[in-house]
Design a protein around this nucleic acid. Sequence first.
DNA 1: GTCTATAGAAAGATAGAC
DNA 2: GTCTATCTTTCTATAGAC
Lengths: 199, 199
Amino acid sequence: MARKTGSHSEITGPKVRAVALALFARHGYAAVSMRQIAAKVGVQAGALYLYTADKQSLLFELMRSHMETLLNAWAQQDLADSPQDQLEQFTRFHIRFHLDRTEAVFVSYMELRNLTADNFAIIEGLRKRYEEVLENILITGQANRVFDVPDTKLATLAVIAMLTGVNTWYRDGGRLSADKIEAIYGGMVRQAVGLPDQA
Amino acid sequence: MARKTGSHSEITGPKVRAVALALFARHGYAAVSMRQIAAKVGVQAGALYLYTADKQSLLFELMRSHMETLLNAWAQQDLADSPQDQLEQFTRFHIRFHLDRTEAVFVSYMELRNLTADNFAIIEGLRKRYEEVLENILITGQANRVFDVPDTKLATLAVIAMLTGVNTWYRDGGRLSADKIEAIYGGMVRQAVGLPDQA
DNA sequence: GTCTATAGAAAGATAGAC
DNA sequence: GTCTATCTTTCTATAGAC
């Protein structure tokens, strides 16, 4: 019952995905060859097809996994009581989660057009579920008259774009710590939805 | 002195760039072949090299041209007097300009990693010059105590990310007109920098 | 499970005819 | 100015040995 010696599928499989993620993030899906991935993993190109049906499946699996990890991570949050606190919670959660996975975020935003139509539809569905998390917070706060948001749909997209934008310039060891950035963005988001400067 | 009949460099050259822009925007730089571009232009692949030194130069020229058009368009604006009005002017200008050139915007943000190091540095320089336009407005408004912006650098990046994000979801004939979108985003930006709901 | 070998297609770019 | 033809390289994916 012992597994055959030399079998490394539990190691090599994840390594293939990790290497592919790094290379896709740096050079782009279309610019990366299966040979490049194989070389970095330390196997021959043909061996990759033991771990993925093809290059497209490799990309899709990376994106699907990223989106589901995101949704699961939010689902495990202990949701705050008031819409104001939920908004701050979401802001900090979003920035932190995305700064912790810059490669997956980059690939998930940049490589959408390289998905097949079917795969694209699945990823889009997951992305919309995440947007609904924020929109529901805004809708509740608007109904309670604590927010001033003329269009919750646009505000959702505006806030998410603003927060995800941090990934385009943040670098470890830069001028501001992640915590400080969360605080500053938290303040800007509060003001953007019409809350006073401090609760 | 008459130009040789059958010479079309003034027509074909721009057409090559227009076709390349459309294809790069849709499929990505790395995924588009010179043969595909040539087929859409209506020439053979070899003929493209009469209008561009290579594929990289074609990409760079599209991005450089886009950024310089952007900077020139802003330079020709009649600048408003107060920081508040300048901020609204910038918001409307940015959304309008970017919605009018979705392909160039897409390529200029997505294909940065496919530029050579030298070309990347040039494009980055142009992008920073544009960011300074907004940051200078925020700095002035902050100095005059009409804005409440704890960090003008972060606020600059946050506002630009928010505004450019419109391009990811806007479609002609959608729920909201460009003018309405400008108004709603104008309001959110005002609030984000600490201005009251209406001037 | 990984290898070598290779099929088969397509890429960027150039040469030289017209 | 555009063409055909081609050089050279590289690609994804598969077949079959071990």
